[in-house]
Design a binder for these strands. Structure first.
Lengths: 203, 203, 203, 203
DNA sequence: CCGTAATCGAGACGGTACGTCTTGTCTTATG
DNA sequence: CATAAGACAAGACGTACCGTCTCGATTACGG
């Protein structure tokens, strides 16, 4: 909330040798709460600073724009919430991971942040670059993991194009979420998995 | 534009029985040009009115917000540019249509408008509803057409879920465009078609 | 103030043919009150606009700076409060007028505005020019009037330098007010008059 | 400025035995230069510290506000530049002193500082008190000196009110400088002296 | 064919938020 | 312990747009 003073953390008002971690956390917390409360359109830097109990200048000093705050607030949420399991069974891993992906995109708070940023990226090339180079590339690597493990286990032929496979699996999910707005129930994601496995039987 | 006075079209200053078509066209033209010139973020109603040579009140009288102007400007571009061909051959029709879809989304002016609106829709439920109920639903029907014709011709089994098929085909394209930003060459769209046809051979 | 709507004065929200007299009055009233309440140093345009119930842009549209608002607020107060009487007797007129001058400078609200502006003028040449060309010149002419009338009546020789006379009379008063801060009682102003009359007996 | 390091004077960064004379001088020099360069309105503590090569805190530690810096910078300039001569002849002394006063107020650097402070004092009672109790009172005593000596020499009757005399002489000069902005040539100051001497002939 | 009512361009209005600047306080490492 | 440096919370600056309003001119219909 901003006026939280952790025990043992002296109230820091800045010095020449580095920024205030307290102010940083307060801003990131504030931006998360405000995004949920008022939505992106009415999310203002003025409001963020006020909610965080922080001067506007402090925000401008460390973040170029409000989407950069969101980018940092997104932080490791993606990694935490969207890392695939490793059960030793490809079908199980994929079904679980795609279901988690659907749930993240449609219901999670961090998913709302992610969709908002993706939306802004459609007319903000700079943001698009950052978002893709950092978060989306890393997520793509996580999405490949179950498949790589299956290849290693011999569950999948080694000549399957894993990048394409990820696109075949994730594409329709994102299409529903971002474009048609249709719901993404487990039956749907399971169907994607079945179709993929039918196409790529173990050798 | 805005100050263009067509020969024979007297400079209209309003009457009680209807709006000025001239003002409507000027606004829609201005919004198109400005979107390309300054981008969505700096697209303002003030700027649109000034560019169109139109009073702000005239804009507010006829459009609730700037995305509504874009919605109207998007108009029939979708239908015109994204109607599938009917050659009598499913492979040919699908390849052509998906390639056109990719090109529309990545390079066409109207495609930029479409992506912008999709982006805004991620945090504007009202816009999302309008966009989906009008344009996306209509586009989905157009996307189904080649498949429906193929079923009628016996090229496809009649028990294929065409809605799912559209999602399988369009999903990965939109995923690349909206999420990863990867290019969408004909080889990619052709691959989607081949995969689909392999799965659904004629009976 | 600010939200006062005079009967018969429709609540004006502006149009292309002129400014809102209501907004003008509200700003001038607000600036007077605030100067007295918080002093010049803490007189802000933001505060003036808020007190007047007026948008900041309206203030910036019509006045280049806060001293210009004060200049206009000073307006006719000088003329109203510092016009010399015309009793037909020089001694009486001068004593009354100098006493009024002292009282204006030391106690009147408009006098506080005047001293503030004089103070700013010491390091703002533009303001100095405006203040002198408009208000101080006009006041000088008013200060001369009793002397001119006395010359016309034959109470004063016609070869007296009236401009110098004004400086001799007003100078010591302003010196006390602006420099030493000493009080300016009627005995002091009367003394100035006596000294002047002693020097310039009727012919 | 600011980074001047006198030979033999080690660059002082603080010690436990008192304040840095080097920092004090740097600030006073900086304030003088900056006042001339940018004017009082844009004279900021931040700028003074930067120009002096001194930390802001050092300024705040030793001076309550920027006018206090100016007060100290004004220092003994008044005494140095505005001490009346003592020739043994009242007319000569007065003419010289009033001419020096006019020149100090209108052209000297220290005179600009003085006028600026006088200006601020019009809406800053604290500054007014300090300025009057220290500098103006002292200057008044210096202004009296030629008159006191003349009384001692018998050039002036001993019952003349010398304080009033000073006001009669200095008042019109300050009136021109501070109020009307009219020039103050020697003819003007000489005229004041003549008028005074005419009124107070030696007994 | 004249009156009238809705529309037009224009732009002032009360506001909100922007991104910048300065204030005065606080913290740190150095000497 | 005073210093130079600079981050901090606070808040005013002047600007850009928002969405509303008012204005006088324009014009097509209906009485």
């Amino acid at each position: 909330m901003g006026d939280v003073t952790e025990p043992g953390e002296r109230r820091h008002h800045g010095n020449r040798y580095g920024r205030s971690e307290r102010a940083r956390r307060a801003v990131l917390d504030a931006v998360d709460n405000l995004l949920v409360e008022v939505g992106f359109a009415r999310l203002t830097i003025e409001g963020i600073a006020a909610r965080a109990g922080v001067g506007k200048q402090t925000v401008y000093r460390w973040w170029p724009s409000k989407v950069d705050i969101l980018l940092e607030a997104l932080g490791d949420d993606l990694a935490e919430e969207l890392s695939p399991p490793d059960s030793g069974d490809l079908r199980k891993d994929l079904c679980a991971h795609l279901a988690a992906m659907a749930s993240f995109l449609t219901t999670a708070d961090a998913g709302a942040v992610f969709r908002t940023l993706l939306g802004q990226a459609q007319h903000d090339p700079d943001l698009a670059r950052q978002l893709r180079e950092v978060h989306i590339r890393a997520q793509h690597r996580r999405d490949r993991l179950p498949l790589e493990r299956a290849v290693a286990r011999g569950e999948l032929p080694s000549d399957v194009d894993l990048d394409s496979a990820v696109e075949q699996l994730a594409g329709p999910i994102h299409y529903r979420v971002l474009v048609t707005g249709a719901p993404v129930p487990p039956e749907f994601t399971d169907g994607l998995v079945e179709r993929f496995l039918r196409e790529h039987p173990p050798e």
